[in-house]
Design a binder for these strands. Sequence first.
DNA 1: TCCTTGACTCAGA
DNA 2: CTCTGAGCCAAGG
Length: 134
Amino acid sequence: MKFLSPPDQAEYRRKVWDVVRQIPEGQVATYGQIAALIPPSKGMDPGDYAAWSARWVGGAMAACPDDVPWQRVINSQGKISLRPNAGAERQRQLLEDEGVEFDARGRVDLDVYSWAGPSQEWRQAHGLVSIGGS
DNA sequence: TCCTTGACTCAGA
DNA sequence: CTCTGAGCCAAGG
């Protein structure tokens, strides 16, 4: 799914995967968090980007390579975003195997497992937004 | 060609 | 804290 595809979708998805690969085992990141690390394409309206980038990340996950730890990416509520019949149980299983715990409602405590993001150095090397924002 | 269907998030109730 | 609805594009049937 992509809604409002970014001008450079292939490029965008590649960046998303690079970021996801940095998420350490036992930690999780949200779609919005990943999106916030990647700057909008030149000329793109910041408002539109903020509104749709999270979905683009979701779209990137839908087609990610096997070496991408897609299970560590969940929604802003700390819940699995996959539909029950699309691998949600598998995702939860993978996370639990890494030590991530789910509460009674099937949510992950983001205060405990949320990833802090890649190092400033890594961000610069990959052309992502720097710490401190613009 | 028309209609459905998405790995999301945020504000309101 | 939980549940709803809005925002909005494109590929596939």
